[in-house]
Design a protein around this nucleic acid. Sequence first.
DNA 1: AGGTTGCATCAATGAACGTCAATACAAGCC
DNA 2: GGCTTGTATTGACGTTCATTGATGCAACCT
Lengths: 124, 124
Amino acid sequence: MSKQELEVPGQDADCCSGVSEAPLDEERAAELAKVFKALGDPVRLRLLSMIASRGEGGETCVCEMTPAFDLSQPTISHHLKLLRQAGLIDCERRGTWVHYWVLPGALDKLAGFLTAPQTAGAAA
Amino acid sequence: MSKQELEVPGQDADCCSGVSEAPLDEERAAELAKVFKALGDPVRLRLLSMIASRGEGGETCVCEMTPAFDLSQPTISHHLKLLRQAGLIDCERRGTWVHYWVLPGALDKLAGFLTAPQTAGAAA
DNA sequence: AGGTTGCATCAATGAACGTCAATACAAGCC
DNA sequence: GGCTTGTATTGACGTTCATTGATGCAACCT
């Protein structure tokens, strides 16, 4: 259940320069675009926010998220899947319920990409 | 030509908490989703990167960007328009050519949203 | 075993998106 | 004035996406 995510680009190396440092090559642009596309939906953004607001090691149960939206349960499940495939979150079934959490570093990596190098130290 | 952008959410106030601080309300999620959606395309990401790599006050001419892609000129123009409507860049015509630049603070605001409060000071 | 609850997957539909050719507009040049 | 070059807009087409109802699967409870 947690084997299909996509790897946040450069998760395994600090190979990544920021958006302002040098023009992106096509491959890395495609990787990053997938992640940003996952964030480009208000429902997914709210889902991610609900999960992330639990803090670093926190988790959120699907059963808490679904009723917060005027959407069917399959739709919520679909959006969670996209967030997972983008490498932003992961999940685990514990008994009857499925719990989601934010993959550590995923958001920071994105933020580091966006931050201009002269504005902050960013990823290094 | 530069009047139709959307305002980066919270550009005019430091009202904005990060993704990890509290669940997003629908309105702000919709605003942010528009910006992230603009970043969710490899072509737009590369365009933004080309413009941003000119530095803080730098500019990039459309005539430099178009030949870098295997796409028609209208398509490039379309993507630039979306980036502009997302409040990420702006442009000005000077003589025959149109020059684009990154709106200052736009990327930092996004990065600040993504960065967990305990991980970095972020925007504040 | 049968029934119930929580969540994921499937299949279908309508909307949104990326792309292009054609066209329009703006500015310089003859 | 007309011609040429650079960029934006329009209209159309194929693809992708968000959403749903129906269904499937996993775990708990009698």
